[in-house]
Structure formats: structure tokens, C-alpha cells
Computed example of a mutant assay.
Amino acid sequence: MRRLAPTPLLLCALAACHAPTDKDAGEIADAANAIEANAADNIVEPQRSILRPEVIDKPDVPAIEPVDAVIGFGQAPMALDDAARSALDRLLATPAMKAGGPVTLRGHSDSRGSDGDNRVASRIRGELVRDYLVEKGVARGRISLVALGETRPIAPNGREDGSDDPEGRAKNRRVEVHVALPAVIVPPPVEPKPAEKP
């Protein structure tokens, strides 16, 4: 940063230390003109202060957002296929996953079979996703799993004429992943200690 030239007020104060002469007055005027001419070249940076956060530069850090993903089990009803592993790898690379927030897995199934069997199938799908994430380094304690069975379809399991709809059932076999932001723990305010009496 360039050093600022003396201000006209300072020059006048210095000039007052002795009786001014015509030469002094000319020097003061020249100095004042030089200051005005060079004012555009002088860069003044704001002071940094812990008491005035508005003058502290803030880095351009992108905001982290929660992430949602759907892992399909259409082709391999009880196994992770290449598409599912690829989707999980993309999820692992997100800022939300790297931030360390909680991960919720909601397993789903189609409507073929009994309610109990479908709930078990949806839990197994959730466990497959959980185990893959843990294998890739996600702490198991971050992950919670909910088995919903056939209760929340996103596509019809059958056609209007009552026949089976394999494509619809394939869409319903899925695990929905939600990655939340980590909780921010704010420490309680520090109470000042009362002054001790002498």
C-alpha cells in the first residue's frame, strides 16, 4: 500500500512553528496542490476490526445446501447396480455430505407381495445403501434408516385395466437419501464474574 502524503492541515501546523515567509507559503501551496493531484492514486484500505465486522473482508464461500437423491433398484431389485453406485459416488462428492450432517435413508418397495415382506425388502435396500456409504468412509452413526415398504409409491404398480405395470413397480423400488446440514452448536454466553469485594 502506498504511503499517504501529509495533509494540508499538517503542513499548515508545521508552517506555524516559525514565522512564515513567502517561500514557505509557496511550498505549502505546492504541497497542497500535489496532494490534490495525487489523491486518486492513494488507496485507503478499511481498517480491520473485531468490533466492527462490517469492515472485515468475508471470503466468497458458497452456501452449503441440503441434498436429496433417489437410488433406484429397478434393474436389480435387491442389489446396487452400476447406476446406483455412480449416483452414490456423486452424492459422496457433494459439499453437504462432506460437511458431516446427518443422512436419512428411506427405503421403498413395490406392491407385489405382503406388506410385511415389502417392509423387509425396503429395509434391505436401505441397508445396502447404508453399507456402501459406510464402506466409502461415512460414519455409521450419521446414518438413520426408515423402512416404508409399499406405503409411498411414486408410480402406479398396476395399469388401469388391473394388469401388472413392471415399469411402475421398478420406479417404486428405491431408496430416498436426504443429507441435512450439520447442527451448529452455539455456546452459551459467558457470564462475567462479579467483582470481588476488597
Rank of each mutant, 00 (worst) to 15 (best):
M78L: 15
M78I: 11
A79I: 00
D82T: 10
A83N: 10
A83P: 00
R85F: 00
S86P: 02
S86G: 11
S86Q: 14
A87F: 01
L88M: 14
L88I: 02
L88N: 00
D89R: 12
D89Y: 01
R90Y: 02
R90M: 08
R90T: 10
L91T: 05
L92T: 05
A93H: 10
A93M: 14
P95L: 12
P95S: 12
P95F: 13
P95I: 11
A96T: 09
A96V: 08
M97K: 03
M97T: 15
K98I: 08
A99M: 03
A99T: 03
G100P: 10
G101T: 04
G101S: 05
G101Y: 02
P102E: 07
P102Q: 06
P102H: 00
V103D: 05
V103N: 06
T104C: 07
L105I: 02
L105R: 03
R106E: 11
R106V: 14
R106M: 15
G107K: 03
G107R: 04
G107N: 02
H108P: 07
H108S: 15
S109T: 05
S109H: 05
S109L: 00
D110K: 06
D110G: 07
S111C: 14
R112M: 15
R112N: 10
G113H: 10
S114N: 05
D115F: 14
D115G: 13
G116R: 13
D117V: 09
N118V: 02
N118T: 04
R119F: 10
R119E: 15
V120T: 15
V120F: 12
V120P: 00
S122A: 13
R123E: 14
R125T: 02
R125Y: 01
G126R: 04
G126P: 05
E127N: 08
E127Q: 13
E127F: 08
L128N: 07
L128R: 07
L128P: 09
V129Q: 07
V129S: 09
R130D: 04
R130G: 06
D131E: 13
D131K: 08
D131T: 05
Y132N: 04
Y132V: 06
Y132L: 07
L133H: 04
L133F: 04
L133V: 06
V134H: 12
V134E: 12
V134W: 12
V134D: 10
E135I: 04
E135V: 00
K136S: 05
G137D: 09
G137I: 11
G137W: 11
V138T: 13
A139T: 07
A139Y: 06
R140Y: 06
R140T: 12
R140S: 15
R140W: 04
G141F: 05
G141H: 01
I143T: 07
I143L: 09
I143P: 09
S144R: 14
S144P: 02
L145K: 01
L145G: 01
